[in-house]
Simulated scan of single mutants.
Amino acid sequence: MLEGYEGFLPRNVYDVEKVPEIKKLDRDTQTSLLPDLLVFTQDMNWPVAPGILEILLTFPEEIVPHVQDVLSSNDDNWKWFLLHFLVINLPVESKVQFKDYLSKVAENPTKMELAEELDEIAKGILATLSL
């Protein structure tokens, strides 16, 4: 977490009052918060998650490396939420940056990726790239 930015972030997964405040911040400050905001998408059932997702989708290029970090982790449940709610809704120019990951999961999923049905959503996203 960036020093001095803690006050801008939701205090917990129920802190939906922070979302409108974050939306009012200047774009540079919002960009600095992206990695920390992404954490609130670990479960889209959390009350704060839909509002945070809305903010993240306004940064289609800037969010890519942070999402790639999660996709290279072992948190298959978080990957499911990111693919189903964030990546699929990004513009093609951003989605295409996940092509290698999506192709790997679609063609050769691990047991856990199969259990989370990541191969199916990966195939669906790949189809939207119309390559």
Rank of each mutant, 00 (worst) to 15 (best):
Y101T: 04
N77W: 10
K24D: 13
P10F: 02
E117L: 05
P10V: 00
L114E: 14
L33T: 08
H84Y: 08
E117F: 02
W80N: 03
E21T: 01
L56A: 06
P35Q: 12
I52K: 07
W46F: 10
D43Y: 00
D69A: 00
E54K: 01
D15I: 09
A49L: 01
I52Y: 06
P50W: 04
G124P: 09
I88A: 08
F8I: 11
V13H: 05
S32A: 11
E116L: 12
F98N: 06
P60Q: 15
M1V: 08
N74G: 14
N108A: 07
D43R: 03
V105W: 00
K111Y: 15
V16S: 12
Y101I: 14
T110I: 02
D75C: 02
L131F: 10
A115M: 09
V16A: 11
V105D: 00
E116R: 05
G51H: 10
T110Q: 14
K23I: 09
P10W: 01
D26G: 10
L2H: 15
E107Y: 03
S130V: 12
V87P: 05
H84M: 03
Y101N: 12
K79M: 09
V16Q: 11
E62K: 13
L90W: 08
E62P: 13
F40P: 15
I121V: 11
E116W: 07
I121D: 01
P10R: 07
R27K: 14
L33M: 04
F40T: 10
P65H: 12
L71V: 04
F85T: 00
L9F: 05
L56G: 02
K24V: 12
S73E: 07
L90S: 05
N74Y: 15
P91W: 07
R27L: 14
V92T: 10
T29Y: 04
P20Q: 06
S130R: 11
R11M: 02
F40L: 10
T110G: 08
G7S: 03
E6V: 09
V87H: 01
D43A: 08
I22L: 09
D100T: 08
V92W: 05
V96K: 09
P65K: 15
A122N: 01
L2D: 13
E61I: 12
K79I: 13
K18P: 02
E6P: 15
F81A: 09
M44H: 13
L102Q: 00
S130H: 07
K23Q: 15
L37G: 06
L83A: 02
P47G: 11
S72D: 06
F81T: 14
E62S: 09
Y14I: 13
N45W: 05
V67P: 02
P47R: 06
F85A: 02
Y5N: 10
L126Q: 03
L102G: 00
K104I: 13
D43E: 06
L83T: 03
I55W: 07
K23P: 14
F40V: 08
V48Y: 01
T110D: 14
A106S: 01
I125M: 05
Q42I: 12
L37M: 09
D76G: 09
A122E: 06
S94Q: 05
V96L: 04
E116C: 13
D119F: 06
T128N: 08
N77E: 11
Q97Y: 07
Y5W: 09
L82F: 03
D43M: 03
R11Y: 02
A115P: 11
R27A: 13
R11P: 06
M1I: 15
Q42N: 13
L71E: 00
K24N: 15
G51Y: 12
